[in-house]
Simulated assay, not measured.
Amino acid sequence: MKHILPNAMLGILGGGQLGRMFTMAARAMGYRVTVLDPDADSPAGGLADVHIRAAYDERAALDRLAETCAAVTTEFENVPADSLGYLAQRVRVSPSAESVSIAQDRIAEKRYISGAGLQVAPFLAIEGAGDLDRNLEGHLPGILKLARLGYDGKGQVRVKTAEEAKAAFAELGGKSCVLERQLNLKAEISVIIARSSPTEVACFPVAENQHESGILDVSIVPARVTPAVAAHAQEMALKLAQAMDYIGVLAVEFFVPDDDDLVINEIAPRPHNSGHYTLDACAASQFEQQVRTLCGLPPADTRLLSPVVMVNLLGDIWRDDEPAWDKLLSQPNVKLHLYGKKTARIGRKMGHFNVLADDAETALSQALELKQMLHA
């Protein structure tokens, strides 16, 4: 693949915080960036060289991207896959429309992962109310999840009985879902890989993730799992990327059951919230990797330079005024990242901070103390 070098214009569909951090990485490396996002106040749009304010499927906007950009990527998987396919006829696109379409539908995603010889939690595709009339015993208690457009715990309902599953299906609007058996877990972990070609692949250290109300709260790196579990997770992520012939940055989330028999939960064809620790704790960030893989360059060094804990900052801590940032910024080992969003809402990701320390437990203790102070 021909290298795309600095001074070239790169395009990205989506102007949220992931697009913002991509833009910052690209510009630091000498590239120019065009953001396509309909929001006039998008966090990435204000930093980009060009902000095209249009819908993601508007052909005139896509034509402008294809004419002015050397390559195009995306910051989220719910961008229309057809738009990526349309662009790919004229310009380099990473990840591919096919990869994104797999991640857009939980049914397709789980079937694809299983077809690649990798384990997922036992599940049933629920595409109509009649699918809940079968014997559900092997999938209960479980979680009924919308097949499309669910994220951060939205569109998910825990169910214990067939009756509850039917009520939940109606509550979710009778849309296609998966019923996934609930597992007893020791931990949830994630792996982020960068793949420029079958022979140019790099894997970041494994993160251990803790959630609140379905939203990622804390990521701990290195993950507190055995070296064998961490290595197996990386191997599974690499095998899946190979099966997909994936080019770009790919996040793979795993469940760690009591017996350590890893199960893939879901994938994200982009940088991931659980990879924000790489901004401060690794030799290269996941966003630099997104730039490099898009431009046909080999992935950069993924070494962990310091144990780290990442804490999400949600809109919940914004009250009458700004949070007490001095509590964070007075700590020399804490790195604050704010996303430039103008309006704070409960549950909205507004930023994050990374705590660097000599070991993960020390970083976690300090991170949780700082989080509590911000919420006080």
Rank of each mutant, 00 (worst) to 15 (best):
E171Q: 15
C177N: 06
A81I: 01
Q89A: 14
L136S: 06
C177K: 06
Q89N: 13
G117T: 12
T161E: 05
I107V: 15
V100I: 05
F169E: 03
F76Q: 08
E67T: 13
A54D: 10
V50D: 01
E77A: 07
L84F: 02
L124Y: 02
G150I: 00
F169C: 07
S176K: 15
A168Y: 09
K110D: 07
R134F: 03
R53Q: 14
L179S: 02
F169W: 15
N135V: 15
S83Y: 01
A48M: 07
L124K: 04
H139P: 03
T74F: 00
Y112Q: 13
A147T: 12
G130F: 02
S96R: 07
E164K: 00
A168N: 04
S114D: 11
E163C: 04
E180C: 07
R92S: 08
D152I: 04
A165L: 08
G85V: 00
T73S: 15
N135W: 04
D105I: 10
T68P: 03
G46E: 12
I107Q: 12
L87C: 03
E127W: 00
G128M: 04
G153A: 08
E109G: 13
K154C: 08
D82K: 05
L118K: 14
L136A: 08
L183R: 14
L179R: 00
R148D: 12
S101H: 11
G142S: 06
D49S: 08
Q119R: 15
G153W: 05
